[in-house]
Amino acid sequence: MKYFVVAGETRRLDEVTRAELRGDFIRCRDGITHYELTGPADGEVVVFTGSLTTPLFYWDRLVGELHARGFRTLVFSAYGRGYSDRVRGTYDEALFVRQIADLTERLNVTSPFHLFGASMGALVAMAFAREHPDRIATFTLAGPAGLQPAPAFAFLLRSETLGTLLARKLGSKMLDRHLKHNVRDPQLSAVLTAMVRESYQFEGSIYALCATIAAFPLAGREALYGQIGSLPFPKLLLWGDRDEVTPISSFDKVEALLAPTESHIVSPCGHMVPYEEPTETALRFAEFVTAARKESSR
């Protein structure tokens, strides 16, 4: 797919615009990453990997809860999202794994950290953990992707000519349709849509979204789940009972493959458990980490 800009992408990410934007920025191997490292300076670090469309602001409600419980948090926008660079390249799994590795190393997050992935970010988190199991203290997934059918149009987007044409014409509509199914509560859904759409005013955003759908393996990831299930770090699985993006019907299969230490179905809740139910998510996570600490000290 060729790089393109669509109507509505009226701003460019550069030093001038970034100086006016929230968050911090650091250059990694593939481009500039937009991040925030906040919370108690002596707290254990939790690193978050987000979904197909969301910027780092997605985690705001949850990180506030975790700061109050003594955790330090590292949130970032994946390439093509938030205020991170719109990379003109292949948006495959390796790109997003490198981003986590680069960011944590450059910020000196060297001790084993808690890794938390949601939706597509769950797949990125698993791919990172598979390569760097010694860097993981605990591992949490919420509404994980990977077992649902691939988008029907994904193979069309892989064509340089046809894919570029379809992405330019239909990319914004695909984004809007996707956002409608993420959150159960209409008010929270409206806030999320505005948050995501604000980031999509920057050049190359729809290109990055469609290039990810084309190159990132979003389906058939049973083997990856099984590989993570065989690793020894503690695992927590959270899932909304009314998830319409990664339906709860996959829960039993993921539980069998992942072999989590703990698993919880959050009710009533849609696809975005950390965003929709931050207090319950923080409580479950904190209790899980406390139990993991006690188990490791035996």
Rank of each mutant, 00 (worst) to 15 (best):
Y83D: 06
R29W: 10
L37C: 09
T49H: 03
T33V: 15
D60P: 06
V16W: 13
E105K: 14
V45A: 06
R69I: 06
L21K: 09
L74S: 00
T73S: 14
G64F: 09
I100K: 07
T104A: 02
F76M: 02
A41E: 12
R69N: 03
R72Y: 01
G23T: 04
E93P: 07
V63H: 03
L103I: 07
R81I: 01
D42Q: 12
D30C: 10
L66M: 11
L66G: 06
A101F: 10
L52W: 09
F48A: 01
R86F: 08
D42R: 09
R106T: 07
G23D: 00
G50T: 14
T73P: 02
E65A: 10
R12C: 11
R12W: 12
L95F: 08
I100A: 06
E44P: 00
R98P: 00
L74A: 00
R12M: 13
L52C: 08
G80Y: 06
V47E: 00
V45R: 05
E44I: 02
A101D: 14
E44N: 03
Y91Q: 04
R22F: 13
L52N: 02
V63T: 14
T17S: 15
D92E: 09
R11D: 14
G23C: 07
T10D: 15
R18T: 08
E65G: 03
R98T: 07
L74H: 00
A78I: 08
Y83K: 03
T110P: 02
E93Y: 06
D92A: 09
L62Y: 04
T33M: 14
G23F: 03
Y35N: 05
D30M: 10
A78L: 13
C28K: 00
G82S: 07
P40H: 05
A41R: 11
L37P: 01
R81E: 07
R72H: 05
Y79P: 06
L37F: 12
S51V: 11
Y83N: 09
C28R: 03
W59K: 04
D42N: 13
D14N: 15
G82T: 00
F96E: 03
V46D: 06
G64W: 05
F48G: 02
P55I: 02
R22T: 12
N108R: 15
S51L: 11
R22K: 15
S51D: 12
A78V: 08
V63K: 04
D42M: 09
S84Q: 05
R12S: 14
N108G: 12
R69D: 01
R98I: 07
T17K: 09
